[in-house]
Simulated assay, not measured.
Amino acid sequence: MNARLADLLDRGADGHEPGPEAVLEALFDGGVFVPVTEAGSVLFLPDDERRPTLLGFTDAALGARLLPAAAGMVHCDAARLREILEKTGVAVLGIRSGNGQATVPAQVLRHWASRGPGAEMQLDWSADPVAVALRDALARRIREFPAVRSAWVAHARWRESGEEQLIVHLAVDEDLPSASAHRLMRTLLREEMTLGPEHPEVGMLALHPATHADSIADLDRRGLDTVRHDAASGRVHVISREFDDPAVVAANGAPAPVTQPRPRRRWFGRS
Score class of each variant (00 low, 15 high):
L134I: 07
P146K: 07
L138T: 01
E144N: 11
R149Y: 06
V132W: 09
D124R: 14
A131E: 12
D124Q: 13
L134R: 02
L134G: 06
A147L: 11
A151P: 04
Q122T: 00
E144A: 15
A133K: 14
A151D: 03
A137F: 08
D136Y: 04
A137P: 07
V132Y: 10
A127C: 13
A151V: 02
S150E: 09
L138K: 03
I142A: 05
L134T: 01
D136R: 14
L123I: 03
A137E: 02
W152C: 04
R149W: 10
S150R: 12
V153Y: 05
R141V: 07
A156I: 00
P146A: 14
E144T: 02
P146V: 07
R140L: 14
A137W: 02
D136T: 05
R141S: 08
V132I: 15
E120M: 00
A127R: 13
Q122H: 02
A131R: 08
L138G: 02
R135N: 09
W152T: 01
W125T: 10
L134N: 03
W125G: 10
V132D: 13
A127Y: 09
Q122W: 06
I142N: 03
A154D: 05
W152L: 03
H155G: 14
S126R: 06
A131Q: 09
V130G: 08
A156S: 00
R135W: 09
A131P: 10
H155I: 07
V130M: 08
P129H: 13
L123P: 04
A137D: 06
F145P: 03
R140H: 10
R135Q: 15
A151Y: 03
A156W: 01
A147E: 14
P146C: 10
D128W: 12
D124T: 08
A156Y: 00
E144Q: 12
R143E: 12
A133E: 15
Q122E: 08
R149M: 12
S150W: 08
D136W: 10
W125Y: 15
A133T: 14
F145C: 03
V130T: 11
D124M: 14
A131L: 15
A139T: 01
L138C: 09
A156G: 00
P129T: 10
R143S: 13
R149T: 07
V153S: 05
M121C: 00
W152E: 04
A154G: 00
A133F: 06
S126L: 14
P146Y: 09
W125M: 13
V132P: 10
A133Q: 15
V153R: 03
R149H: 09
A139V: 04
V148N: 01
V148H: 02
H155Q: 12
R149I: 11
Q122K: 05
I142L: 13
E120S: 00
W152D: 01
Q122S: 01
F145V: 02
P146G: 09
V130K: 03
M121R: 00
A147M: 12
